[in-house]
């Protein structure tokens, strides 16, 4: 099954949840309504002809101008060798998406990372807590409006610019 066929099948099954535009490329990108992402992923993983058995990557991008956060799901199939990228948007002030941990166990850590660095909250995630940053860190550093705090536990994060020295 080609990616175009997969896309058509998704459109037939799910209607407007999946956008009708498929951005071509090495990794074709397809827009999906955020709240239905788990549903779409379940079909993509379990449908025999599609069988995306591997979540190659999961990452979030802060689109400040559009006031959304986009989460990218890079799916890959070892069985068939085809690839697809799902892009799910969620409102920036309150980014919430359903989890896909139950489909691919690796999503556990990848979602934790997206939560830690961009603040996307994945509902249904078994253990959503910070993974890279310290637990008591305030804010999500990869957000475009993140401002580094002046100090952390009494350690100053400010230092003279090296160019001035």
């Amino acid at each position: 099954m080609t990616v175009a066929e997969i896309h058509r099948l998704l459109r037939e099954r799910l209607g407007t949840i999946v956008s009708d535009e498929l951005k071509p490329g090495d990794w074709p990108v397809c827009e999906v309504r955020g709240q239905s992402i788990a549903e779409v992923c379940a079909i993509l993983r379990d449908e025999p002809g599609i069988a995306f058995d591997c979540l190659s990557n999961l990452t979030a991008v802060d689109r400040k101008a559009a006031d959304t956060i986009e989460v990218y799901y890079h799916l890959f199939s070892y069985a068939h060798g085809h690839r697809l990228v799902l892009r799910a948007s969620t409102p920036r002030p309150d980014p919430i998406l359903p989890t896909v941990t139950h489909l691919w166990p690796i999503a556990d850590w990848l979602e934790r990372e997206a939560f830690d660095l961009l603040g996307v909250r994945f509902t249904g995630h078994p253990d959503l807590r910070r993974i890279l940053m310290p637990e008591d860190w305030v804010g999500h550093p990869l957000r475009k409006d993140f401002v580094e705090p002046d100090e952390y536990h009494g350690i100053s994060t400010r230092r003279e610019s090296l160019l001035k020295l």
Binding site: S56, N57, T59, V61, D62, Y72, H74, I106, W109, L110, L142
Partner: peptide
Amino acid sequence: GWFVVSDGTAFPYRVHIRTGSFA
């Protein structure tokens, strides 16, 4: 995996590196 998002400026908009050891 190297994921790069460009917004047309001289700076990458977002970079994500998915590494083997992470998994």
